[in-house]
Lab assay of single mutants.
Amino acid sequence: NITNLCPFDEVFNATRFASVYAWNRKRISNCVADYSVLYNFAPFFAFKCYGVSPTKLNDLCFTNVYADSFVIRGNEVSQIAPGQTGNIADYNYKLPDDFTGCVIAWNSNKLDSKVGGNYNYLYRLFRKSNLKPFERDISTEIYQAGNKPCNGVAGFNCYFPLRSYGFRPTYGVGHQPYRVVVLSFELLHAPATVCGPKKST
């Protein structure tokens, strides 16, 4: 009989979020998941679920829940969905086509923008091939755009693969920082350890 609540607040209220190319993952297990707390949290810009209804989450049990978190621009949030393409979905964070879970995003301009620009948040701009679902690539190898080998030196046709967002408070909404948490639900042939409040007695 599990009684402790799942530590969703640790994920959602973290002081610093990860850059999207180096997205953070927390495994959540052996706890009671009260999703209504999240669902009623006012400032969400997006709360979209795939393969599961957000209002039914509290009735369900899962083997594991993974909480992935990172920061992207407002106009990139739409790429955090199954079957998407674009710089983020291709080179930074890719969801599987059969994704079961929820994508939760909110504007973090007050936290993550600075006058003069916040350059701490990076994304991958160049990559030889697209990421596989949930693949994480933190390499900083110089990207070779031409035929000539770069030998690890940036220059003509040789690019550092990461780019900084440089968030400023005055940017338009599409270019403002958004914090994103992706909850993915794993249902294995194993005992369920993460259940909603109704199922955990």
Rank of each mutant, 00 (worst) to 15 (best):
F134N: 03
G166R: 10
R27I: 15
A154T: 12
A46T: 04
D90N: 08
G174M: 08
V194M: 12
S113G: 04
I104M: 00
L111F: 05
G155A: 05
P54T: 11
P54S: 09
S36K: 13
F160G: 06
H189Q: 14
Y119M: 06
R16C: 10
L131I: 07
S184M: 07
R16W: 11
I138R: 07
S139R: 08
D90T: 14
L60T: 14
F44L: 11
I138E: 14
G196Y: 11
K128N: 10
D98E: 06
G146C: 07
E141V: 12
H189A: 14
N1D: 03
I72V: 06
K199M: 04
V173N: 05
N4A: 09
V153L: 12
I138A: 15
N64G: 15
T63D: 10
S19N: 02
F45K: 02
H175Y: 06
S184Y: 15
N109T: 04
V115H: 00
E135S: 03
S113T: 10
A42H: 15
H189N: 02
K148T: 11
P197W: 13
S29R: 15
N1P: 01
F44K: 13
F41A: 03
S164M: 07
K48H: 08
V153P: 14
K199F: 10
S164V: 02
L5R: 12
A105V: 09
K26L: 09
H189M: 04
I138F: 02
L5I: 06
Y39G: 06
I2V: 08
L111D: 09
S184Q: 02
T193R: 01
Y121L: 01
F126N: 07
F41I: 12
N24K: 08
A22T: 10
N130P: 05
F134E: 05
G116V: 00
K48R: 01
T193F: 14
Y91H: 07
A22S: 04
L187R: 07
V153E: 06
A46K: 04
A18Q: 13
T85Q: 11
D97V: 14
R73D: 07
F156V: 13
T193S: 08
G74K: 04
D98T: 03
I142C: 05
L187M: 09
N151P: 13
N120G: 12
N120F: 02
F44A: 13
V37F: 02
A190D: 12
L188C: 07
Y119Q: 05
N30E: 12
R27Y: 12
K199I: 12
R16H: 12
P149K: 11
N64W: 09
Y35F: 11
Q84M: 04
Y121A: 00
T201D: 09
K132Y: 01
P169H: 00
K199E: 10
P191R: 09
A46E: 05
S36E: 11
N130H: 14
A42T: 13
G174H: 06
E10V: 12
N1E: 01
V173M: 14
S19P: 07
V153S: 11
L57I: 15
Y39L: 02
N75C: 03
L188Y: 11
F156S: 12
Y178I: 14
I2A: 01
F41M: 15
R16I: 12
S164G: 12
A42N: 05
N4Q: 06
V173Q: 07
F134T: 05
P7D: 09
T55K: 06
S29Q: 15
F45G: 13
E141Q: 14
Y119P: 03
R27T: 12
P54E: 08
Y143S: 02
N151E: 05
N151V: 05
I138D: 15
K132S: 03
Q84E: 08
T201H: 04
S53Q: 04
N147C: 04
H175W: 15
N107A: 09
G152T: 04
F41W: 10
R27S: 12
I2D: 15
D9Q: 10
P161N: 05
S29N: 02
P197I: 14
A190Q: 11
F134L: 04
L162I: 01
S29F: 09
A18E: 06
L122Q: 01
S129K: 14
F160Q: 10
V37T: 01
F45N: 06
A192W: 09
F134D: 03
L111G: 03
P149G: 12
F41S: 10
R73A: 14
K56G: 07
N147P: 02
R27E: 04
G152S: 06
V153W: 07
N75M: 11
N75L: 09
V65L: 01
R27Q: 13
A18Y: 06
E135G: 09
F160H: 06
N120L: 02
